[in-house]
Amino acid sequence: MKLTSLLALAFSFGPIRASPSTTTTTTVIPSTPAAELSDVTWRSSAAGFDAPKVSPVNATTWDWWYFDAIQSPAPEGERASVVVTLYTAVPTAFHLLGAFASAGYTSLTLVETEVSWPNGTTEMFLFNATEATITVLGDSASGVWDAPIGTASFNGTPDLSSYRVELNSPYVSGSITLRSNAPAHYPCGPPVAGQNLQIAPHIGWANAIPGADAEVQLIVHGEELSFTGLGYHDKNWGDQNFASSVGAWYWGHGRLGAYTVVWFDFLTPQMDNYISAYVSRDNKVIACQCQGIQVRPYGENSAYPPLLSTGLPTGYNITIALPPDDGRIFAFSATGEHFISGGPGRHIYTRWSGSLKGNVDGEELTGEAIFEQFKLFNQTTIMWHGY
């Protein structure tokens, strides 16, 4: 097993951070890939946590900003959610965009919005932006994806304490407001200069808002969707085609009682394993580490590693061993209740909304979560590597 640099933290990130920079930078990204090499950022600096990490974006590199919110509390059987992803990518870099491109959504600056109603019905909305303008101040970024039919934008505060996403299109409009209650982090450590930004080779990850109080106010096809709950924001990027870097991954985030948890369990195409675990409470970090976590499917179709031919599991069992000076074990399950993306069948990618249930210090805790699975392995690959 290969691991990125190991780091276990059991303190709040806040006191060790420098004051946010007051320098403003603006990047304009066109709707077509650049015909030149990209400069990709793999090491953190003192500011610009949420800044673009690929410049310029060409046909094999990619960079995106992801936001979600999930209803909490929710009546039995209900779980509204909304996911907004603002891409700077094309299918030759991120192959899952191929289906969108076949339907005419070919822009490098593409916006995807997935709305899940309380009863589990999901709708997807796409639009081709003509360009994206991203302004960085301090650690945050603010972006505008502009299109003839409307706009999508996000605006963050320099200290990453809040973000607001605004949508304005003929089909969906309104806002998502996130007020952070969990400090930002990189894959293996705090948001300070000098951190390795790779969750695995060729894949970057920066989690600006691991947990937030979310307020959603949308109008979808003229119908109101409003709820409060749990919010989240991160970004990913890469310097080569996604399928060349990923064999499978399990990622998710949620609230377990008073704790915010984020997990990542990743296999490269060569079966090298990379992991990351984050736990916080009351806006203080308990663990941010690239060790001590295992995520495995349970229930039906629980084979590991997952194959392209494997059906979907019931959910995932997650175990996080906290740093030695804490010594506790977080053991909990994430159970899928509604499909946000993918669904029954053999999908390369599936995203769920669902519930968390676990035991911490002998106390039974529950909560809500959004989590996902990528699976690109076939049986020949698994047998070749001895599984």
Rank of each mutant, 00 (worst) to 15 (best):
M1F: 07
S12D: 14
S19E: 15
T23C: 03
T25F: 00
S31K: 15
T32K: 12
A34R: 12
R43H: 06
S45L: 03
G48H: 03
P56G: 02
I70M: 08
S72F: 06
A80D: 05
A93P: 07
L96G: 04
A99F: 14
A101E: 14
T109E: 02
S116R: 15
W117Q: 08
W117R: 15
E123G: 07
I134T: 09
I134N: 12
T135P: 06
T135R: 15
P170K: 11
V172Q: 09
S173P: 03
R179M: 09
Y186W: 05
P187I: 00
P190K: 10
V192M: 09
L197T: 08
A206R: 04
N207M: 05
P210Y: 10
G211D: 05
G211Q: 07
V216R: 03
H221M: 04
G222M: 06
E223P: 01
S226G: 06
F227V: 01
Y232D: 01
H233N: 06
A243T: 09
G254H: 12
R255V: 15
D265G: 05
Q270C: 01
V285A: 08
Q289P: 05
Q291H: 13
S309M: 10
I320Y: 08
A321L: 13
A321T: 13
A321S: 12
P323L: 15
D325C: 06
D325I: 11
D326W: 02
R328A: 14
G336Y: 02
H338T: 04
F339P: 04
I340D: 01
G343A: 04
G343V: 04
G358P: 07
N359A: 10
K375A: 07
T380C: 01
M383T: 13
W384V: 00
Y387S: 12
Y387I: 02
